[in-house]
Write a protein that binds this DNA or RNA. Structure first.
Length: 337
DNA sequence: AATCCTTGCAACCGCGTAGTA
DNA sequence: TTACTACGCGGTTGCAAGGAT
């Protein structure tokens, strides 16, 4: 037995909206607002439409200040960086692009931007296969170890990640690309030991992590995806446990620490000693054993069974996604010396 | 000119979640 | 605590327009 329909399907019009319908809906909402009830709205206006359809039409098309098409390079960069960081969380990505809707961005990504970027990678792969048989070729490693049922999303993000690395010259990392990361957290650019004072100083600056997570150590506060100036953070929460100023920290590379991902919480752990809590919106625990992120030594503990936020990807897919994020952003964690 | 194929985008569908009684 | 309702989100579909053959 399926879910009860949200409206009487038989008496509801489907398909493209007519200009008359648009006018009716827009006029009414301009005058009276939605009334907090989309389901009842079409009846009030006299539209033979489902409430959900009205809502969608309003949000994606009729709402004021909506922009369609003509994405700028800057918008491309923001979309790309957020997609690699958080995946297909279109509403979150849209929140960082004023005037853009999640549907618009989703369509733009699926039909243009993704092809544009992955197309470039194909070109580069061709060049690689002709001129380079380097043992460390990431593509070769990829072919060897990528799980067959790796989700499309994870694979895309992986491909994009690798491509973006390739796009840099050998002496420049992905993370230092000012186009991709307009405001890169200075901690990530350092490979040397960072003292608490340095961390404190850095944290007080207006700087952001490419993942979109900004850690304010002074206030034990986290802001997620605060990318555009003047745009309110998508998420902000006090961390569970503050950094101990008496300890000395250094940026941690590789996978020497455990990473735990809960529902909406990502704990970067240091072998059981939780340091930070980050909100990322996932629902599993992931543990690595200090090995390569491609390695098989990954333990996964599924905490809950439902996770629509990350689509229908399998647990293995999600593992890979987690690994991807871990590899990318492990640098942001610290372990005590 | 006709047909087929591809692309872009609006809209739909189903599910998870939050709010409330 | 449970059941119900509505909202919001992301994946998917349908179709029109344009291009290729």
């Amino acid at each position: 037995m399926g879910r009860a329909p949200c409206c009487d399907k038989a008496n509801v019009k489907k398909g493209p909206w007519s200009p008359e319908e648009d006018v009716k809906l827009k006029d009414y909402i301009d005058k009276y607002g939605t009334g907090g009830n989309w389901i009842a709205l079409p009846q009030k206006i006299g539209l033979k439409r489902c409430g959900k359809s009205c809502r969608l039409r309003w949000l994606n098309y009729l709402r004021p200040n909506i922009k369609h098409g003509g994405f700028s390079e800057e918008e491309d960069s923001i979309i790309l960086s957020l997609y690699i960081s958080i995946g297909s969380r279109w509403s979150i990505i849209a929140a960082q692009l004023p005037g853009r809707t999640d549907n618009d961005i989703k369509n733009y990504w699926n039909t243009k931007l993704k092809k544009k970027l992955l197309g470039r990678q194909k070109q580069m792969n061709r060049q690689d296969s002709i001129s380079d048989s380097t043992e460390n070729n990431v593509s070769n490693n990829n072919n060897k170890s990528t799980p067959q049922n790796l989700s499309n999303s994870a694979l895309e993000r992986l491909q994009l990640h690798m491509q973006l690395q390739n796009l840099q010259n050998p002496f420049s990392s992905f993370y230092n690309n000012p186009i991709l990361w307009p405001k890169l957290h200075p901690l990530l650019q350092s490979t040397t030991t960072t003292t608490p004072n340095q961390i404190s100083k850095l944290a007080s600056q207006e700087s952001f992590h490419p993942l979109g997570i900004n850690v304010d150590h002074q206030n034990n506060n986290i802001k997620l995806a605060e990318i555009n100036n003047g745009v309110s953070p998508l998420y902000s929460e006090n961390v569970e446990q503050s950094l101990n100023p008496a300890q000395e920290f250094q940026p941690s590379f590789g996978f020497s620490q455990d990473l735990r991902l809960d529902n909406h919480n990502m704990n970067l752990m240091n072998r059981g000693h939780s340091k930070e809590l980050f909100q990322v919106g996932n629902e599993f625990e992931l543990t690595t054993n200090g090995s390569s992120w491609w390695s098989e030594e990954v333990e996964l503990e599924r905490k809950t069974t439902s996770s629509s936020s990350w689509g229908s990807a399998s647990v293995l897919d999600q593992t890979t996604e987690g690994m991807f994020m871990l590899q990318d952003y492990a640098q942001m964690s610290y372990h005590s010396v």
